[in-house]
Design a protein around this nucleic acid. Structure first.
Length: 291
DNA sequence: AAAGAATGCAACCGCGGAAGC
DNA sequence: AGCTTCCGCGGTTGCATTCTT
């Protein structure tokens, strides 16, 4: 059965809001408060859908809204929060007073997304240069080792002792993303990875899991780490609500309400992601750069 | 100066979850 | 339990503005 439309669409205004409509909506909400969006347009004398009214109020008319001039601090915070939360604009907006999810979403799509792409491109170029340099150095070492070995072998009568040439492997971290996570924390907001926690990793149903045993409360907290999917989203799986709930309620950020703490959180995740031995090799495409 | 391209942003659309009946 | 309604969210669109040629 199809979902019923949220409002009768016949005869309703669409498109940009007029100053008159804005005034009507503002006055109504100031008098009666937010909510009841479905019935609001009728009561306020607006020929608009309730959703449209809500959107207009939330993104434009609300008195506490800041518009434009996103500071470098906010910029930085958005990037960090996005890497943590993915495209959860409302959560990100919730940590930036006066900013709306729509504004942040637009800002990301028009500016930060490109900025990140450029940064990534630069990183990739630097990375590639370093890798090429590393391979050259390894080849030099390999040659000198070979020479030494052949000189040694000349001196020995038994040729069977010739060791198989050591294979050179260049380790490249796989692109990975946090698929689902629950962050354990103490009331004091101390790190999840402090000395009273033990960490183990395991494989389960195709995803890697990192289990943190927090000795303070005997809770095992499982961090699932999956491989980067075909899209570039960083969304968490739907069955993990704990972190999101904490973020939504603000309790999560009570314990990490400054950049330093976010930085710390990042470091912890990097540590988590580095736990498993990274037996990554260049694929054929990457290897082709070194031929 | 004009036309076309690129950009920015407000608003719309459809979906999923929660709540109510 | 199942259906309907409402709310909120994220993705997308369309238009106005700015930039480039």
């Amino acid at each position: 059965m199809g979902r019923a439309p949220c409002c009768a669409k016949v005869g309703l205004h669409k498109g940009p809001w007029t100053p008159k409509e804005d005034t009507l909506l503002t006055k109504y909400v100031q008098a009666h408060g937010e909510g009841q969006w479905k019935s609001l347009p009728k009561k306020a004398g607006l020929l608009r859908c309730g959703k449209s009214c809500r959107l207009r109020w939330m993104n434009y008319l609300r008195p506490d809204i800041k518009r434009g001039n996103i500071s470098p601090d906010e910029d930085d915070l958005i990037i960090r929060l996005h890497s943590l939360l993915g495209n959860r604009w409302s959560l990100i907006a919730g940590r930036l007073p006066g900013r709306t999810d729509n504004e942040i979403k637009n800002y990301w799509n028009t500016y930060l997304c490109k900025k990140m792409q450029n940064d990534q491109q630069k990183c990739d170029e630097i990375d590639l240069e370093q890798k090429q340099h590393q391979v050259k150095n390894n080849n030099k070492k390999k040659k000198s080792n070979k020479q030494k070995k052949s000189e040694k072998n000349k001196g020995t009568k038994n040729g069977n002792n010739i060791q198989e040439e050591e294979k050179i492997q260049v380790y490249l971290p796989k692109p990975i993303r946090i698929k689902a996570l629950t962050l354990p924390r103490t009331d004091s907001g101390t790190s999840t990875l402090e000395s009273n926690s033990s960490i183990a990793s395991q494989e389960k149903e195709g995803t890697k899991q990192v289990v943190i045993n927090n000795n303070n409360n005997n809770n095992n907290v499982i961090h699932e780490v999956g491989e980067m999917g075909e899209n570039d989203g960083f969304g968490f799986s739907s069955d993990d609500h704990d972190l999101v709930n904490e973020i939504e309620s603000g309790s999560f950020f009570d314990t990490c309400n400054d950049h330093g703490m976010l930085e710390k959180l990042y470091d912890e995740y990097l540590q988590l992601l580095n736990l498993d031995d990274c037996n990554f090799e260049f694929d054929s495409f990457a290897e082709s750069f070194f031929d």
